[in-house]
Nucleic acid binder design. Structure first.
Length: 204
DNA sequence: ATGACGATTTACT
DNA sequence: GTAAATCGTCATA
């Protein structure tokens, strides 16, 4: 167990937070007290009203996007493709709808539980460790994060939070265009994806 | 009330 | 590489 991130850590712009979260730990705890956690190795920054790829593009404020308008440190969890969840950390000021999507983790604690959550009756092969959390919907499944965690405050929740890790030196961070946002025109090619260059746990 | 569409994953050719 | 799975959300009517 490590030192937990407080509000101040989240009160920054999305690019700084996307870089700053790398090398720190996302933790989720079951009602029974079992921890699953992993080191954040891949993130994407979503820049708000101007960003065509962001759900909050144009200032769109709906029941779904409400979390993005809240305080830094709030979780924004959304459902997509009819079956997947993605986990974001809201940052910036209240009413400025910016956030960071967590796209991949290097599993640390609770791997047996992660494996159980990630296994389906349909699956034939055994999951490799690098398949547990190497994508935005994989990690939410492995961590047991669903819409119920939408709007939770990462600064005081007992269920989901961020713990201080070693971080990642600037030279170890890779940068690329964001994934899955081809519809976003000129914003699709902006280099707003950040990852630990050396990690084998990044999404493909 | 209806229809189009995903900040994805998986399995299959 | 291609395609299916699968349904909440939101814009349109």
């Amino acid at each position: 167990m490590g030192e937990r991130w407080t509000r101040r850590g989240f009160e920054t712009d999305p690019v700084s937070l996307a870089r700053g979260l790398l090398g720190h730990r996302l933790v989720s705890v079951t009602r029974g007290g079992t921890r699953t956690s992993g080191i954040i190795v891949e993130t994407e920054a979503y820049l708000g009203e101007a960003d065509r790829a962001a759900h909050s593009f144009g200032g769109r404020r709906t029941a779904r996007t409400e979390a993005m308008f809240r305080s830094a440190g709030i979780a924004y969890v959304f459902h997509t493709y009819g079956m997947h969840h993605c986990f974001n950390v809201v940052c910036g000021a209240v009413d400025v709808p910016v956030a960071v999507l967590v796209r991949a983790l290097e599993p640390v604690e609770g791997m047996a539980l992660m494996r159980r959550r990630r296994s389906s009756s349909r699956r034939k092969s055994v999951l490799k460790v690098t398949d547990l959390c190497s994508g935005p919907a994989k990690l939410t499944q492995a961590m047991g994060i669903t819409r119920r965690e939408n709007l939770v405050d990462l600064c005081d929740s007992e269920r989901v939070f961020i713990e201080r890790g070693k971080g990642v030196a600037a030279g170890e961070i890779g940068v690329s265009a964001r994934i899955g946002v081809a519809y976003a025109a000129e914003w699709a090619c902006r280099e707003l994806r950040f990852y630990v260059a050396r990690s084998g746990h990044v999404s493909r």
